[in-house]
Design a protein around this nucleic acid. Sequence first.
DNA 1: AGGCGTTCTCAGCAAACTCCCAGACTTCTC
DNA 2: GAGAAGTCTGGGAGTTTGCTGAGAACGCCT
Lengths: 228, 228
Amino acid sequence: MQRRILVVDDEPNIVDLVAATLGYQGFDVATAANGGEAITAANSFRPHLILLDVMLPDMDGFEVARRLGADRSGVPIVFLTARDTTEDKIRGLTSGGDDYVTKPFSLEELVARIDTILRRVGLSDRQSSQLVFEDLELDDDTREVSRGGRPIELTPTEYRLLRYLMLNPRKVLTRAQLLDHVWDYEFGGDARVLETYISYLRKKVDVDAPPLIHTARGVGYVLRMPRS
Amino acid sequence: MQRRILVVDDEPNIVDLVAATLGYQGFDVATAANGGEAITAANSFRPHLILLDVMLPDMDGFEVARRLGADRSGVPIVFLTARDTTEDKIRGLTSGGDDYVTKPFSLEELVARIDTILRRVGLSDRQSSQLVFEDLELDDDTREVSRGGRPIELTPTEYRLLRYLMLNPRKVLTRAQLLDHVWDYEFGGDARVLETYISYLRKKVDVDAPPLIHTARGVGYVLRMPRS
DNA sequence: AGGCGTTCTCAGCAAACTCCCAGACTTCTC
DNA sequence: GAGAAGTCTGGGAGTTTGCTGAGAACGCCT
């Protein structure tokens, strides 16, 4: 089924980035740049999930959530907040099925959250929280990763990277794609971190077993079985 | 079977919060904002349980209960009262299978009460009041907790936290989820209380035995067996 | 009012994680 | 085969995150 997501943010760059990503993920996306538009759009577009910036020009995100009121009827909201917003403040207002993501976020993280929530409400494509490629398994609910049954401990960044690779098995992912999805969209650091993390992953995932992570020289990396 | 709950309160925020939570728990939820609506809704919606704020704009909750009269025919009521309401007053008016919860409450507490009452009337999904994970046991009726047969004394907050963990075994629960469910919906304090309580629980639950409470760094906590 | 158990805050410490660098290694090109 | 370009990985600095003890604040009971 086609799932609808409403993206509300006043920064066009972010709206475009997120809308494009979600569209590519197969969602039907509508956007709004302020609270008023958001409420109108929510009523006509009837989204299954709302992605809502807390800082909007006319009213804050919580106000929008409140005004949606009964109409909202269980539609979950993912709030986008600045990193320095105290967790406490968000907490009191996000409740029930809601969640929040701090800016700047990585697309991987955002998509993962949305996935989790839609699965909880029973609207996910993927019924299971399990990602499987060959003997490599990753479970989003338990955050457990294993290769051939043997558990693997990953740090948050390693986890996001592997998850993105497993979502696109056998596809060559460019450096740019990997950096864009796994790291903050604002990440301005040395692009060579990627190599470092690939190296970390290999040491944890590709030991004592045929390597699944391969270098596409000059392009990026792929997850696939070794050739021959 | 789909169980129906009628939520009666004049604060929209609370109604939304509670309705969303119960909806997510699998209940069929209807709402009313005052006593009049409540009586009408009770007659048409025929709920299995009524969640009833004591302070309503037109009449108080006890009045509503009285007016439901014979129609009520055994439908239990959970009253929502302000903290400072004297317990005696409530006692006198809540009868038989009724119960009450003081505002502000935690979602964990509310759901636990509803569960207990529905179980008493034979309408619960969970047949038993026992939660068991490995050698850790928790009984909602007696509030007894034990690990490997050895009894453990917990404070109310510790109990709610452990209960929520045990309801979601092996699932990584985010900080936000834990704070939202275990603490008051009005809690505006330092989010680090959670760490303190995890620490308390560990000292009581995870001594002299393989630890069951694990940290998912950067995310939250899980209840699971140690990996190998 | 005093005492007790509980909840919450705070701060210092410890551990984990992210990122950068630099030198070694591999692959490609001529 | 030699140089250039691209990639790998160990080491380590700096930051973030989580743990825990101490004690303040609160409510409840007598």
